[in-house]
Design a binder for these strands. Structure first.
Lengths: 233, 233
DNA sequence: TCCTCTCTTGAGCGAACGATCAACAAGGGC
DNA sequence: GCCCTTGTTGATCGTTCGCTCAAGAGAGGA
């Protein structure tokens, strides 16, 4: 009587083969959570997530003690795990001029973050006041932009950061170009404007337009600061 | 017995003088809602909003039939009302070179949108799939960038848009610089990185760096497209 | 002084939220 | 075949959501 009653299920239940191993199920949950929270934001509902996975909602809490723990796992999966150590090597590669290092880094980096889940969860976390975005961009600043600016100083025969610390407006030079490239993805994946353009090509063109003048601008910025410091002293 | 019992109130209740006129109360609610939803996102709670205003929650529904209606009102207040018709005049001002028009527009525009509520509600709306961001940026594209690109064509003695329609990559030239300027505010007001810089000054410096090469790049882009079109025909 | 208009509130509805727990059922070892 | 381990679920708890409704209370005219 109780067993296998042919009851009509109210919601589309099981796109997944049941009784997975723990590892398989956990992976399925993580991937589904990334896709789901990217779509609806980090305050999406665990019930709806479970429904999309075709599993019961309590099963989520078997694998993650709390919703916050699941979100923490998403951070590791989407941001920390996709951080490419090669980026840090590229921007320090002494065999390349600094501008070429920057170009190669940005093209690689943007290809990584120009991703529905990456950008939307990043922004959603920022709005919710989580420190992921500031921590992540702090990493970009420290591990990418600092060594790059240091070598740009050397390449332009400017004082080393030891003699004259890197200033905020020098970082802004890089963040400016960086931000223009990020904005291409934001317009499409967060604001929902398709535009129908090849975003990789657009960013390559933007780099072509912005990079040639960068070293000269950098020299001007550093020189201006030296004058200010000299007149101030 | 019932009247004015000296009961301790559980939450800080009334920073506002009670019994306002309808117009005053409505204004207070709108301003409070802008600040509140900017802080916590558009799925903030009406109860918490009321608590911050020092009023009872049902009072919100006296002035706005639904939460969606209140949000719609926020759109009008923050985006439509702050749209400056002078921007459209600036970018068509025949007495100024196009680059100067663009600079003046961006400096004015960015000063308007570099605002906690403006940026955060804009992004929050984008994440929630509302069409405000795409509609608004469509307005920027049509009312600002189109006339600007049209006159840039003329200033560079290039074919008019009637003979050769404005192409996506021409718009991207302007959106690229535009996005770099917007990103300055996003980093601070959405991602929570203060940086301690004068964002107006940073943007002015970015314009100084980006504008000089813009016309030449524009000519190159248009020329490239003409070749493609010619070889394709 | 009292009445009336209207701004304002306390109490509460149905639904949905994150999270819990005991019971069910699919495998693999014996 | 049996049983024990473990992946999985239905039912449900306490809370909070947007929203409603009838009653309270201040201000102005008579």
């Amino acid at each position: 009587m109780v067993s296998t009653h042919p009851l009509v299920v109210p919601s589309p239940p099981a796109p997944t083969g049941r009784r997975l191993t723990a590892a398989e199920r956990e992976r399925q949950i993580v991937e589904g959570a990334i896709a789901y929270f990217a779509e609806v934001g980090l305050d999406g509902q665990t019930r709806e997530l479970a429904r999309r996975l075709g599993i019961a909602q309590p099963l989520l809490f078997r694998y993650f003690p709390t919703k916050a723990a699941l979100i923490e796992r998403i951070y590791e999966e989407v941001y920390l795990k996709r951080w490419d150590a090669g980026w840090e090597a590229t921007v320090r590669d002494p065999s390349l001029p600094c501008l070429e290092r920057f170009r190669r880094f940005e093209i690689d980096y943007q290809r990584t973050i120009d991703n529905y889940a990456w950008l939307r969860i990043f922004v959603s976390a920022g709005l919710k006041g989580f420190d992921l975005p500031s921590r992540y961009l702090g990493m970009v600043r420290a591990r990418i932009f600092t060594p790059l600016l240091t070598d740009m100083r050397a390449e332009s025969r400017l004082p080393s950061p030891e003699d004259q610390p890197l200033a905020a407006d020098e970082y802004e030079l890089l963040f400016g170009i960086h931000g223009a490239l990020v904005y291409v993805g934001l317009r499409s994946l967060v604001y929902g404007i398709d535009g129908g353009v090849d975003r990789d090509a657009v960013r390559a063109a933007m780099l072509d337009a912005a990079l040639p003048g960068l070293l000269a601008t950098h020299r001007r910025v550093v020189a201006a600061r030296r004058e200010t410091a000299a007149s101030g002293a």
